[in-house]
Amino acid sequence: MSALQKALKKGMTSCLSCHQLVILPANGGHCRCPRCGASVHGRIDGSLMLTWALTITGALLLLPANILPIMSAIYLGAGEPSTIISGVMQLYNSGMWGIALIVFVASIAVPVMKLLGLILLLVQIQLRLHFVPTQAMKIYRVVSGIGRWSLLDLFMISILAALVDMGFIAQVAAGPGSTAFASVVVITMLAARSFDPRLIWDAHDGDLYATAVEPETAHRSAAENG
């Protein structure tokens, strides 16, 4: 294990913006990156609390996003507002199951999986459950990578609203659920950003609340352990 050294134990950390190795001030505070000027913390400040808050907000907003109609399509005087789920069902029933699958994945599976993934990561870290860090990192990467695809449905509504605008013959308009859904997407993206993956490794190594240790002490404790 002696080859694997943590930067925070040596009083250093990586600047999250430009990836420069920065020496943190000895009192455990934060400083500015000498290269790009970004604020550098040992770990993202209040990462777990912020991620919890955003995840819970996102989960709560997911209810109105799914219950309220996301758009309404009127064709030849007929038509009614549709929610996300009824929109997917409509597509499936009219035989476009490929499109139905894409919309289902983007608007239902991705937000739910994202929130579940974040909750799983947070619970694993806070309860110090036994977990494999490489698997947790896989969850983190999926969670932070897929979020943007949820905006698909909203982009589609904006395209349809411009294309199908013929008064009483055919008209597509956004519904109140779309505002809630837009907030869900933005909030879950911010939640994934505020989560600091280095906490996974801290929890794995058993020093979750590790603060910056001065190099001398770090050397001594390493010598004691070794």
Binding site: F155, I157, S158, A161, A162, D165, M166, S178, S183, V185
Partner: peptide, 24 residues
């Protein structure tokens, strides 16, 4: 009707969905 990058945003804005329009 045509769809350009901007007129979809404008029709959302016109219908009062300002937050959604600005996000798009």
């Amino acid at each position: 009707a045509d769809n350009t990058l901007l007129n979809g945003v404008y029709s959302l804005y016109k219908a009062g969905f300002i937050w959604l329009a600005s996000l798009v």
